[in-house]
Design a protein around this nucleic acid. Structure first.
Ligand SMILES: [Mn+2]
Ligand SMILES: [Mn+2]
Ligand SMILES: [Mn+2]
Ligand SMILES: [Mn+2]
Lengths: 218, 218
DNA sequence: ATTTATTTTTAGACATATCTAAATTTATTT
DNA sequence: AAATAAATTTAGATATGTCTAAAAATAAAT
C-alpha cells in the first residue's frame, strides 16, 4: 500500500510525462508539486527502492509499468470523483479539483467500480479530460490546444487541461464551457495571443490560456 | 486542521463517552484503537496542547466543547458516507465501515452538506445508527439493547451498535436486519444468552451479540 | 500498612516526510 | 579548457506518529 505522498509524486511524474517529456527532471517535479528539489530527491530514492520508477541520478526519472499502473489509477479515481461531484452533488466544475485531490487517495477497488457504474461509465470528466479505463489505458482523443489551431477556422471546446479554479472561473466569465463553439480569427505575433469569437462576442485569449483549451481536430 | 490520527483519537474518545463512562481511560482508548497505551499517552498530551480535551494525568480524559464538535462531525460524516455507499452505490451493510473510515476524514464542509442533501437528509445510517445533525447534535432515540429486554415480550430491531463485518454477517445468517420483528422468550441465567424467535425460527443469541442489538422501547 | 498487581507515563528508538544549507554534478559561457 | 551558472543530491534538522522497555503512580490484595 502506498502513502498519499508517494501517490502524489507518481501522479506528478505521470502528468509531466503525458505533457511530452521522455524523462522528467527533479526540478520539474518540484515545481509541479510546489515543494523543494531536495524533497523530490528524497522521494525518488524511496520510489526507486519500491521499484515504481526508473531513475538515474542527475539524469531524470520515468515511471515503470508498476508505477504507471498506480498513477493512472489515481488519475482515474480523481476524474471519476470529479464527475460524481458535478453530476450528482451539483458542484460547479471550478469547485471540484481540491476535493478530488483528497478523494483520489481512498483505497477500495470496489468503491471505484461501483462509482463508475453509478455514473454510467463516463468517458470524460467535467473538464473534458478523458477518464482512464479500469485496465489502466488512457483512451486517445483527437484534440489540439487552441494555441496551435490555424487562423480563420472554427471549432468546439472539448476540454481543458488545467483544473485550477482561477482558470476555470476566467473561462466562466468568457462564457466558455465544454461544447462551446468558437471562431478563431488570428494570432498576434507579438505575444501569441489569439483573437476569437464566442457567442458572437470577440475576445482576446492569451497564449497561456490558449494552451489549456482543447479544440476538436478538424 | 487536524490530522487523521488526531481525528481518530477524538472519535474513539467520543465513542467511549457515549457508551457511558464519564472519564475515559488510556487503556480503554488503546483497546478501542488497537494501539499501545504509550501511543495514547503521547497523543493525549498533543490533544491537550491543542485544547481539544480535558485530561488529567493518570485520571482520565473527556472531550471539551471544541473536541466534541470535531468528533461528532466525523461521526456525522462516517454515517452519511455509509448511507451513501448503501443507498446509492449498492454496497451491503457489512461492507461499508472500512471505506467510511477513510471517507470520514475528507475535509470539505460543502461536500458534506451536498452529500446530506443528495441523500435527502437521512436520519439513520444503514446500521440504524442516528446521524448527528449539522449543528453537532446527536438526536436521542428510544432504544434498548436486546440484552436488557424483558422476557416474554416482542420488539423490532432498530439498530446495531457495531459495524464490524463479522458481526453483521452473523446477523445476515440469522436473518436479522433493521426492521426485523423478534420475540424474546427467556434469558439463560448461566451465560445471559437470550432465546428468541425470528421469522418463526427459534434462535439463541449470546449476551455479547445481544448487547449490540437495539430494540424499540415499548 | 505493606506488598503486589495494574495502569499509566516517560525514555529512547524508528519510520515517514519535509525543510534549509552545503556539497556535488552537469550544463553553459567565456 | 577553465570558469561560471544551474540543477541535483546529500547532510543535518524538525515534526508527526508509532513502538518497546523501563519507571512511576494508582489500585487491589494480603
Ligand atoms: Mn482535477
Ligand atoms: Mn478534471
Ligand atoms: Mn461504521
Ligand atoms: Mn454505521
Amino acid at each position: 500500500m502506498n502513502t498519499f505522498a508517494e501517490e502524489n509524486y507518481l501522479k506528478a511524474i505521470l502528468s509531466l510525462s503525458l505533457q511530452g517529456r521522455e524523462l522528467v527532471s527533479t526540478n520539474e517535479i518540484a515545481a509541479e508539486m510546489s515543494t523543494s528539489a531536495a524533497s523530490v530527491s528524497d522521494m525518488l530514492k524511496k520510489l526507486q527502492e519500491k521499484d515504481l520508477i526508473i531513475y538515474t541520478k542527475y539524469k531524470g526519472v520515468s515511471l515503470n509499468m508498476k508505477g504507471t499502473k498506480i498513477a493512472v489509477n489515481i488519475l482515474r479515481k480523481h476524474r471519476l470523483w470529479e464527475t460524481f461531484l458535478v453530476r450528482k452533488l451539483e458542484f460547479n466544475w471550478d469547485e471540484v479539483h481540491e476535493v478530488a485531490e483528497q478523494l483520489e487517495h481512498i483505497k477500495s477497488e470496489e468503491l471505484v467500480d461501483k462509482l463508475d457504474s453509478f455514473l454510467n461509465f463516463p468517458k470524460f470528466d467535467p473538464h473534458g479530460e478523458v477518464i482512464p479505463t479500469k485496465d489502466g489505458k488512457i483512451p486517445k482523443t483527437d484534440r489540439v490546444p487552441l494555441s496551435e489551431i490555424k487562423e480563420n477556422t472554427n471549432g468546439t471546446v472539448l476540454g481543458v487541461t488545467l483544473d485550477e479554479s482561477s482558470f476555470l472561473q476566467y473561462l466562466n466569465k468568457l462564457e466558455i464551457q465544454i461544447g462551446t463553439e468558437i471562431e478563431i480569427f488570428d494570432r498576434i505575433d507579438f505575444d501569441k495571443s489569439v483573437n476569437i469569437s464566442i457567442n458572437n462576442k470577440k475576445q482576446n485569449i492569451s497564449n497561456e490560456a490558449a494552451k489549456h483549451l482543447l479544440i476538436n481536430k478538424k
